[in-house]
Design a protein around this nucleic acid. Sequence first.
DNA 1: CACTTATTTAGAACCATTATAAACTACAGT
DNA 2: ACTGTAGTTTATAATGGTTCTAAATAAGTG
Lengths: 132, 132
Amino acid sequence: MEYIDKLRNSGLRPTKQRLQICEVLFNTEKTFHFTINELKKRIKEKTHNKISLATVYNTVHAFEKKGYLKQIPINSNQTYFDTNITDHHHFYDLNDQKLIDLENSDVGPINIKKKIDGKRIKSVEVLVKLED
Amino acid sequence: MEYIDKLRNSGLRPTKQRLQICEVLFNTEKTFHFTINELKKRIKEKTHNKISLATVYNTVHAFEKKGYLKQIPINSNQTYFDTNITDHHHFYDLNDQKLIDLENSDVGPINIKKKIDGKRIKSVEVLVKLED
DNA sequence: CACTTATTTAGAACCATTATAAACTACAGT
DNA sequence: ACTGTAGTTTATAATGGTTCTAAATAAGTG
């Protein structure tokens, strides 16, 4: 029920597919990172229900636009998303190709001194690359 | 001549194509950002010589592996590279889809408190997203 | 219930990137 | 200079993530 309101309040119709995707994405103890293909697999495992690839793409993009998901800026052949939408940063393990969350307390305050007229800062993201 | 040595010292044969790409990439007053396609176009303009797409890819990857180029971690349909290999950060203008360099002095020191056993920090990159 | 509009879907299209395999080139050894 | 070998270039095909399309379906409204 809670997701129905969440979707309605965003101007998104609460369809069966979107509700199922909400369950997989947001009804979890911890936040997590995922690619579209990983999400599609999780949906099939958790709901025993196949949602078409196009719908998964549509929904993830809709959720991102509404601010329920964040894209993680990283160069990879696949796009990574994060269900943790709070301001936080990432380790990226180059050897294992794995993303690890950094708590906010793990990174000291970041001071951006430069300003650009007419533009405001939307986000500040730090990517720390690790290697063995 | 200088590029011949640079390449030889890296274990890369100084071929005609690689030397031409060196000219375009490194014989400039300022560093710059580019995609593979932009680079290919620059090569054709500057050298009046066509280098095959595969070679541009090969060379850029070889140079990146040797540390002469950096990939910029940003989500875009194309991969961005940077001829500025010093530690520095970026603005990304979401409206204009343009990358802007941040000088090191534009960003205060970044303190990563978390450590992961057996891994060392290779780089710390900050991406500041801007909007109107 | 009827109507409009949003959503889902399978499949096609797109396009950056990578793989392939044949021709070519740098270079070390003779 | 010749030869052989390993590295490089090249056109083209293949790959694969993402987006587009158009028809079928479902949600919301009166």
